[in-house]
């Protein structure tokens, strides 16, 4: 009976570090064009709250997808010709948050140069909650990437 209790407790409480992680990704071009109220391209309704604090009034979709990320492996997500997103789930912390390495790479200006890591960050993402990385310069406006782990 004690052994069964122990096994059950371990099975319920062990971090799911080996499991793949479902991640929703929205990459948007955010610009200031004088619109009021703010304009969101179709399919971006679910990130209104995530970008509500930003000083932009127009959001256009650059990329939107839900990807299954294998644990411990870096998954490449092409955003546009300049930026590439890399996501690597590490493990799940005791609060149930997914620890995730996020890297945004900027393509080199010259073909012979190497890509530059514009941003590298490690997040502990609460399930069902959104987080964003942004500030990446575009020809017009800035690139904002919203991340949301599956529940």
């Amino acid at each position: 009976m004690i052994l069964a209790g122990l096994i059950a407790a371990i099975a319920l409480g062990a971090p799911a570090g080996e499991e793949p992680v479902s991640m929703s990704v929205w990459a948007v071009q955010a610009t200031q064009e004088g619109h009021s109220p703010k304009q969101f391209e179709a399919g971006l309704e679910s990130i209104r709250g995530a970008v509500a604090d930003l000083p932009f009034d127009t959001y256009r979709k650059v990329q939107a997808l839900t990807q299954t990320l294998p644990a411990g492996q870096e998954t490449r997500v092409a955003i546009d010709a300049r930026y590439t997103l890399f996501l690597k789930p590490l493990d799940t912390d005791p609060e149930g948050r997914i620890r995730l390495e996020v890297r945004v790479e900027l393509a080199p200006k010259a073909p012979q140069d190497k890509p530059v890591t514009a941003l590298s960050t490690r997040l502990a993402l609460a399930p069902g909650k959104q987080a964003k990385v942004g500030g990446f310069k575009l020809e017009q406006g800035e690139l904002v990437i919203v991340l949301s782990p599956g529940k």
């Binding site: 609060e95 149930g96 948050r97 620890r99 900027l106 530059v116 890591t117 514009a118 941003l119 590298s120 960050t121 490690r122 997040l123 502990a124 993402l125 609460a126 399930p127 909650k129 987080a131």
Partner: peptide, 14 residues
Amino acid sequence: PVRATEVESMSTDL
């Protein structure tokens, strides 16, 4: 309870 998202580290090479 599940806490909010946290940033453990951040850097740039630019």
